[in-house]
Design a protein around this nucleic acid. Sequence first.
DNA 1: TTGAAAGCGCTAACAC
DNA 2: GTGTTAGCGCTTTCAA
Lengths: 345, 345
Amino acid sequence: MARRNTNRRVGIADVARMAGVSHATVSRVMNGNAAVDPDIAARVRAAAAELKYQPNPVGRSLALGKTDTIGIVVPDLANPTFQAILRGLSIAAAQDGYRVLIADSSEVTSEEAILAGEARRRCDGVVLCAPRMGDAELEELAPTLHPLVLINRTTVASNTPSLSVDYSQGIQELATHLVSLGHRKIAYLEGPLHSASNRQRLAGLEQFQAKHPDIELQFLEAGSNFDSGHDATDAVVASGATGILAFNDLVAMGLLSGLHERGIRVPEDISVTGFDDIPFARYTMPPLTTAAVPINELGSLAWRRMREQMQQSADATEAEESAQDVFEPRIEIRRSTAPVSLPVG
Amino acid sequence: MARRNTNRRVGIADVARMAGVSHATVSRVMNGNAAVDPDIAARVRAAAAELKYQPNPVGRSLALGKTDTIGIVVPDLANPTFQAILRGLSIAAAQDGYRVLIADSSEVTSEEAILAGEARRRCDGVVLCAPRMGDAELEELAPTLHPLVLINRTTVASNTPSLSVDYSQGIQELATHLVSLGHRKIAYLEGPLHSASNRQRLAGLEQFQAKHPDIELQFLEAGSNFDSGHDATDAVVASGATGILAFNDLVAMGLLSGLHERGIRVPEDISVTGFDDIPFARYTMPPLTTAAVPINELGSLAWRRMREQMQQSADATEAEESAQDVFEPRIEIRRSTAPVSLPVG
DNA sequence: TTGAAAGCGCTAACAC
DNA sequence: GTGTTAGCGCTTTCAA
């Protein structure tokens, strides 16, 4: 006996007893699975209503082998990007009767695999946002997590659907925009060094440099949040660059505030761009030129891909090529970028 | 037989077979509960490692009567306030090995009770943010949800811990701040009409009016997000008020952008205040004067109260008076408020 | 159409 | 110290 019968909630047995039928019949009525005599069904329903019976999801899960829950692993819930993905995912999943379980790795990369595994055991699938996990580790992990949807990562292992943003393309367009405004000295405020999306931006800038060998391109360390942008202010000023490509909107906003404190005007003295187009980007001072990522769609598409995979598993229709969705950012030109000003004198 | 044995994951039975012991022994080793012969324990551990065995949480949950999961019901995951609470809760709960399950009611008040009930059945407790739910409904619902923690609501039913912000006090301080700057015509941009926290602000303003009968106080309809603030711009201008108390930071930011579009300067022409001090409030144009709510603490304290309740239930130490925590907002004066300007001429 | 019974994977009481 | 067994609450097979 695993449990003392203290504090028992009403279970299927209570309804069965009250309606004078077996558990099985109650189950059938509740799920509308098999045909049940209308009179009996009515009796069962009445008893269920009377007792306010609601099936215990844990018992169902064990019997059914599914939890109607999916997990999402995010590196940092404070990041608007992941908040938006979470929201889109949660709303889309709810429409199909699924709930979302959160696992926040708090940027501790070494925990991600463990969290993801644990989430998978509790859930029917996992959406993994693990920008800093090594490729090898991801490749090893992916098959054990199936059904799995990857955000901003791809892996060769076990055809896993992935949704990603073409950061390379976006940053190139932003850089080109600066060039078209006459900027010749441009600095990139790098994101976390091991972040996959930072690497993509770097790759994009390499292509950009190849096309524009005359542009002086510098690389400055920063990070992925407000503070790292703010802390990079001195380095930005020292660089002498007139156009700054920040890793993302948060970094750009931190920089904006740092420049403002030093009395450096944007865009008159320095042009600044962000990335992501978070909701607040249009309300910064000045409004931020950035690359817009359709972030809400990411969440809902993640759910669609998850559902497709779960159906495939159910049908045993394996081996279907899984989708690799790539979102192209759209450049949003606002007021933080302007033609380069001529040196005084 | 509930399941065809397709696609079986490795279970406790496999480990038991491999180690040549019973399920029970494997369970004992995995949980470190009872004393087990060291040699046998080693054999079990080796088998578990070999098979990469991880206990199935659903089975555990059913046997233990607990899921190590708590649910949170929020009206809108797009709202930074709830994002912050979710985050604080998730991080704090994770520290004790608990996960968070999300239920986003998408502002559909009629769904909240259902969502909360469903969340409670899947989880060991529920944190409920339901600002628009009627008092009567809440009072009826609360006992069925226990352990329950209420955010920004209280209920007389079944002593339920609640965390709330003293919006009344905060809005009075903000109003007083405007008065001290010389403003005599003040308008309040109302939040959702049925929101409990809006009612608190109204109550606070009533007290304020009593203390300052000479101040002309107007009430304008708005809402709780950017757009409602933006849409209220014309009404604000028409009101002739020089000091605006927005329902929250989002509304204030929407208004800021609306005023800017019309060439009305803040704070020179109109002073604007927000509420909440969301992370972006200091980066608006101009930086927003607001009432700071220690929002991250709210989430972690919610977890603490939840844990206390769960322990009480376990100890059957019922009837202990449950905490009603009230957070006092701290006024954060930035640049969106300034002395009222003298009428020209 | 219905009930009895097995089983989902696990924990814990009980007997040895 | 260890195995046997009951039971958590449910679904589904099987036999009637």
